[in-house]
Design a protein around this nucleic acid. Structure first.
Lengths: 379, 379
DNA sequence: GAAGTTGGTTTATCAAACGAAATAAGTTCT
DNA sequence: AGAACTTATTTCGTTTGATAAACCAACTTC
């Protein structure tokens, strides 16, 4: 479809925003002649368009941008129970969405998703470009080629050919990815951290997931298990280490996950609603404070270890908005900062961001967008 | 000097061992015609040679290999006090070596090293190829371009232009790298783990260092600080957390480094000689056992965290041979294995290897060899 | 309105890679 | 032994993608 040269132009335009032909030539370190040819081609194909004329000294430059109707992408989140399906444009803007109960039988799931894709397509109307592909974000391990769900305890799937099955009923190319990975890829493509070649993302939900962009590309690990931070042995303080479902004690998720926090609150006779719990800490309730303090501190230590090993330029933590603004967020930051070795003029920034409804589905859509914009060069 | 095509051939030949032209065409996915041209060129330049005729069906193939006198490389280890200087061939075989006291004044150091290079060159005799460059392995942080020593507490260097200074007195290109990084690059190029695209190395010495090969290339981190495992907060078991020179408590190096082990032994009234201490554990001495057990367990937990985050295919731990065969090694392995989440058919292998005299110098030499074989493509 | 500056296009050229056919050097079958 | 087959390597003509240099366009500044 597109050549490597085309993809390079599309990806830098998407990453760095609209720019002129000459800027592109500088950014990609190729001749203006080549850019001229390729851009002409992309405009003719309806993917790029001239957006604005910028006046400076000399001849004004014409900024180029992706046509928002060049293509559109379907994103499906199987991360948690209401399955979310969205349709986005090449800039990551959501054109339509649909929410449905999560179905775990593979065949029924694919059938339902095919119907959902039709609904979303209708809702988006005629302003949207042709659908270039479907991205699926799911918990668990996914094959390196992004086709097979190797093992997902949450869905009860083992070796399910998601790409094959979903592609058969929709007629569209399908790309599957682990949920945390989809989230970071979405951030890289659509989010504000996109220009950063080395950053890490940690997600705090019922479990705890992480993912890493190294050298501009996703780091999957040799067995596809990189970022499995959930069962990192952190909370080993002597006798207090809690048993984990993985069989060990002291795993991070036994202390810092939403489930763990709810469990601890219940055991202390408090509410198991996170929002209420956070509100109680604001009022200074000692037991609620202790629970969130402990959870935040453990995650902070895990983040410190992550930073020491990976040395990313940024760590993005995505979590419940209530937690973000509570003592959890404050202790998390403080604990991480005290345990990271400081060097002059060198610092990893920590960003906390509240989870939004469509975060995972948007990340999933970015999988299809990646293929469209970048091609298969970046695996 | 060499084109990208040349470098691709040299690097695969070095990585995967001798192979025929047709094998190369398959491995690199280029036409046999191109390979034919490039190989002819490399043979004419004296870098490659036809090594053996392999008979199968059809016309026999001719395996190609690197000429061992195509070039030679100088490796300098400033890792510890006796500075070691070696000269190797393109296969990593050591042709000559020279050991001298470590000098910390930059100017004097470079002068001394220049003399050492001359000595090593003479010792190697005329069988060695022309020297292609000098690699330097040093503790501390090094600039991304491999020229400047940004900060090294052990040497007392801050912003020392090592490449410039040493290049001026030797007339050879110089490449500087952090010691752990040099070690893993040497392993990748010259060692048995070379074909592995994702592996990690941990070094236990007076400090503890680690380095990671991700996707076939060294992961430096955004600030060049990836692998700083030494001050990972591991040993946090309540009141027992020891203060560290970094200002925190419970850092890995306060428990598992050679210095920490010696310190703990001294405090218990035992010998501070590692060999003797290891021998005592073999005899079942309870206090010696406790010290090495604790040190090994802490490192095992750190390794488990490393494996969970990076998911390498292999972790190579380089340590004092006496430690390797003691309870330290056994506990290390056991603790790591219990804390790594298991998945069916998926496992990271842990390899312990004793430190050899020339390990760091050989790694340093590999820096120069990398540039010769791979060019600047791999940064 | 002339001079200067910068953006974008055209053209002739080049280097690297490719496909297909030719050639080389063996093994295997009859 | 000789024909038939297999596989490795080389040669040749062509395609591809990128380039530099010259050129044209469009604006600002003096």
């Amino acid at each position: 479809m597109f050549s490597a040269g085309h993809h390079r132009i599309l990806s830098t335009l998407s990453r760095l925003g609209a720019m002129s032909r000459t800027d592109l030539a500088r950014a990609l370190d190729v001749s203006k002649a080549s850019i001229s040819m390729l851009v002409r081609d992309l405009i003719a194909r309806g993917v790029l368009r001239e957006e604005a004329v910028v006046f400076g000294q000399g001849r004004p430059s014409i900024t180029l941008g992706l046509c928002s109707d060049a293509a559109s992408f379907i994103g499906i989140s199987l991360h948690a129970d209401p399955t979310t399906v969205v349709m986005t444009d090449p800039h990551g803007r959501i054109l339509a969405r649909y929410v449905m109960p999560r179905e775990t039988d593979p065949h029924a799931c694919f059938e339902g998703l095919a119907r959902a894709v039709d609904i979303v397509r209708k809702r988006a109307g005629s302003g949207a470009g042709p659908i270039a592909g479907i991205g699926v974000a799911q918990p668990g391990f996914v094959s390196r080629d992004g086709r097979i769900s190797l093992a997902s305890t949450a869905l009860g799937w083992v070796n399910v050919d998601v790409a094959g099955g979903l592609s058969a009923v929709t007629g569209l190319p399908v790309f599957v990815e682990n949920d945390a990975n989809a989230l970071i890829l979405g951030e890289q493509l659509f989010g504000p951290s996109g220009d950063c070649p080395d950053f890490s993302l940690v997600f705090v939900g019922d479990g705890i997931g992480s993912a890493h962009i190294v050298n501009g590309r996703l780091h999957r690990g040799h067995h596809g298990g990189a970022g499995e931070i959930s069962h990192s042995p952190i909370a080993l303080d002597g006798s207090g280490a809690l048993p984990c479902r993985c069989g060990n004690r002291g795993c991070l998720e036994t202390v810092s996950s939403l489930q763990a926090i709810r469990g601890a609150a219940r055991q202390a006779g408090l509410t198991s609603d996170i929002d209420e719990l956070a509100a109680m800490t604001a009022d200074g309730h000692p037991e609620a404070l202790a629970i969130l303090h402990r959870a935040g501190a453990a995650l902070g230590i895990a983040l410190a270890q992550l930073v020491q090993m990976f040395d990313p330029s940024q760590v993005l933590v995505i979590l419940d908005p209530a937690l973000k603004d509570s003592v959890f967020g404050r202790v998390l930051r403080q604990e991480m900062e005290t345990h990271v070795l400081r060097r002059a003029g060198v610092q990893t920034t920590l960003t906390l961001r509240g989870l939004e409804d469509d975060s995972f589905a948007k990340g999933a859509a970015s999988l299809a967008a990646q293929k469209f914009l970048f091609g298969n060069e970046w695996t």
